[in-house]
Design a protein around this nucleic acid. Structure first.
Lengths: 338, 338
DNA sequence: CTGAAAGCGCTAACAA
DNA sequence: TTGTTAGCGCTTTCAG
């Protein structure tokens, strides 16, 4: 009474199971008499036959699944990435298995173990640690994978990253165009590659545009968080630095700046402009709405999925990495210097 | 050179594959000599044996996967729910397969089809449509499922819902305690069960607290969106109604109210207090930070997963539904009437 | 307590 | 073009 099997279809159509298999699989359908094929397909339809990918997988050693390793789905960064991935996997007949690592190496290891035992054909890894022995080991073991948001260090693995440097330049140029000349940077933690890249890009952009390249105009936040961002700005302010605009390492840090504005009675953008980075949801609801650099998260996910699918199809192919262009979303937190 | 199989372990341990199987499975380990079992387990460990759930699934007709049907992962409502689900599934040895339906019935049907062909053992459905013939059919076919966020209509399926009525009462009572007597409601669309439930609960709470129960103090938003919310409030205002506080149908609608405040120069909370519903991320970053009713999304997901696991374990068990308590998060958008 | 044998549903040689 | 055979990795009777 349960769901019909291939054999049921074959019997009902009066052919052998193997023939039915060939007729039902688009890839092998050519090997079979067109009329027979049609008949088999019709019978399958009538019986409501649904192929069992588990059985197929057992035979072909392909599970049709891939693993998505992320720190925490609850972080607004990841849902669009996951969505982008799924949108590509689905039409390709693949399904994604998500695991959350909470940035705990131990958990990450066991979760990846789980994925591998589930026979995933590849991994999309979006966790943040810079040095990553586990991934190196996996790569050595021949596990197909793609890295997201982070260029791997020392491992020869394809990666999809936003073009952070170009994004920072966009932000600085916008501020310069507005007339700002002394621009500060509240950088993200320098233990993260993103933090380093953006800080470096900031200085480069400042120089490119011929603005004042003063190292005292950069403060570093200890974490990618609002509190750390607020602390960073406070340091700059208490230091007596003069500046009329801030490029924040990311949106959370920018939010921290907002807190300081509030606490010290600074009006934004009249006295101080700020640009964030990421374009998290609901930034347009802030007062003032935050100008920020938007990362195409969904495309990043989609591109990662494409790369992985390619790598699965042809593991020998040279690893290729992609850096995606960013865009500036101008809202209310930036204006000409007052 | 690929991953070792059960047979490899058995050979290395000098036992039959069947014995190795029994030794490795905690449930059947008792059937085997403790010493043999230990030996097998040690060998398995050494070889880095990882059981292949696909093969097991083929035999036992259990895939160890369950399907999560949601409209769109990108909607901030869902990630915490998914996270809550995964947190329960994982220790139980299950994995979740997520599909996005975009609220398109056609897509939903094909996605569920996909899930079923992947042999999921059950479904957690979080899509919104009220009348849902597809789900009824599935239920009739014996597909085990649990509904999230919505009490099913006409189908005998377990569900997990937030206790909306209690949440609304929390909001109204808070406002009443602050001294408000004329409280308005910008309700959500009355085509959704949530919209109806909350609107009804609002009137009930007003009466319970002995406040002015004036039907003209309720406006309805056509959608769960900021624009619709703004329109709702404008209607109330243009109507010349007198009120000092608003209970919004959800946070987005409350955000729409903020827009109207801005556009008409109304100061919040001095002239008008607002309470939202949902506690979306970053509401604390608004000016003023929004007071709202928090839904325990993660617990809802967790509870749904538990219910589903129970139902899988014992399909005969009576369907039980759960309504989870909400809490009020008081922030800056509510104050005594000015 | 352990081994032998069969089979889950499907596909891939190989033969006819 | 179709059927036969075998087997993917595992579990589960059934004997021993």
């Amino acid at each position: 009474m349960s769901t019909p099997t291939l054999r049921d279809v074959a019997e009902a159509a009066g052919v052998h199971a193997a023939t039915a298999s060939r007729a039902l699989n688009p890839a092998t359908r050519g090997l079979v008499n067109a009329k027979t094929a049609r008949r088999v397909m019709k019978v399958a339809e009538q019986l409501g036959y649904r192929p069992n990918p588990i059985a197929r997988g057992l035979k072909t050693a392909k599970s049709g699944t891939i693993g998505l390793v992320i720190p925490d789905l609850t972080n607004p960064l990841f849902p669009p990435i996951v969505r982008g991935i799924e949108d590509i996997l689905e039409p390709a007949g693949y399904s994604g298995l998500i695991v959350n690592t909470d940035n705990d190496p131990h958990r990450e290891q066991s979760q990846i173990e789980r994925l591998r035992s589930r026979q995933v054909e590849g991994l999309i890894v979006a966790t943040a640690r810079v040095h990553h022995p586990l991934l190196e080991r996996l790569h050595d073991e021949g596990v197909v994978m793609v890295m997201v948001n982070r260029r791997p260090e020392g491992v020869d693995v394809p990666s999809i990253t936003p073009d952070d440097a170009a994004g920072i330049e966009l932000a600085v140029r916008h501020l310069a165009d507005l007339g700002h000349t002394r621009i500060a940077h509240v950088a993200g933690p320098q233990s993260t590659s993103t933090g380093v890249t953006r800080a470096r890009a900031f200085r480069a952009a400042i120089r490119t545009l011929g603005l004042e390249d003063d190292p005292r105009l950069t403060a570093t936040a200890a974490y990618w968080s609002e509190d750390a961002g607020a602390d960073g700005l406070r340091v700059l302010l208490d230091d007596g630095q003069e500046f009329t605009a801030i490029v924040a390492g990311n949106d959370l840090i920018a939010l921290g700046c907002y807190d300081v504005f509030h606490e010290r009675g600074i009006t934004c953008p009249d006295e101080l402009s700020v640009v964030g980075f990421n374009d998290m949801p609901f930034l347009d609801k802030l007062r003032p709405p935050l100008t920020t650099v938007a990362i195409p998260h969904q495309q990043i996910g989609a591109e990662a999925a494409r790369l992985l699918l390619d790598a699965i199809a042809d593991p020998a192919r040279a690893t290729r990495s992609v850096s995606l262009p960013l865009s500036l979303v101008v809202r209310g937190s930036t204006a000409r210097p007052g």
